[in-house]
Amino acid sequence: MSEAKRINGMSSEGGAMKFVSNAGSDRVLDLIRPWLKPNHRMDMVSPSFSLYAFSEVLTELPHLSNARLVVPPTSTAPTKGTEQEQLGLLGTAADRASRNKLQAPWLARKLAAWLESKADVRHASGPIPQGTLVLRDSQGSAQQAALGSFSFSSEGLGASRYTQPSTIHISP
């Protein structure tokens, strides 16, 4: 494989980047779930991080060997809201049904335990305009990547029926 075809451990052989509508059976969630395997790794930069997105992959994420996450910077400005509000931890209006299940404290404990055991979380130095997700195999080679107008939220993963139109590129 030539160097031009291999970038950062990802081969362009076997398929080109494709657009994902993030609706129906063409969702980010469906494309990343098969790569959330034991001893695999996840790298993600996201403008938000929702408990309800975490709940969508709750059974798969603990199998990963580790995760590296970059989330928006914390703000000390009094009008910016709490860090939980800035991250979108409790989701959006599209997550009302999930919030009505009253599982937020339980999900928060599960998320905290997962973050403590598997994740390295960093804050970006500035706003994050779009999401990036790279799933790696046990040797660290990139197997699936997503880039575009999505986040780690139920809407961003395509798990909400209220998903807004977005441009997302997936690379096999």
Rank of each mutant, 00 (worst) to 15 (best):
S48C: 11
S48G: 14
S48D: 08
F49M: 11
F49Q: 03
F49H: 09
F49T: 03
F49P: 05
S50F: 06
S50Q: 07
L51I: 10
L51R: 01
A53E: 06
A53R: 06
A53I: 03
A53G: 11
A53P: 10
F54W: 13
S55D: 15
E56C: 14
V57G: 01
V57W: 05
L58G: 02
L58C: 07
L58S: 13
L58V: 09
L58K: 15
T59V: 10
T59E: 15
T59D: 15
T59Q: 14
T59I: 01
E60N: 10
L61R: 10
L61W: 11
L61V: 15
H63V: 00
H63M: 14
H63W: 09
L64I: 05
L64K: 01
L64S: 03
L64P: 01
S65C: 10
S65E: 13
S65G: 02
A67I: 07
R68H: 12
R68D: 12
R68Q: 13
L69V: 09
L69Q: 01
V70A: 05
V71Q: 02
P72M: 08
P72L: 06
P73G: 04
P73S: 08
T74E: 14
T74Y: 00
T74V: 09
S75P: 02
S75R: 12
T76Q: 12
A77W: 08
A77G: 07
P78A: 10
P78C: 02
T79D: 12
T79C: 03
K80A: 15
G81R: 10
G81F: 07
G81Y: 08
G81P: 08
T82G: 14
T82P: 04
T82N: 06
T82I: 02
E83A: 11
E83K: 10
E83I: 08
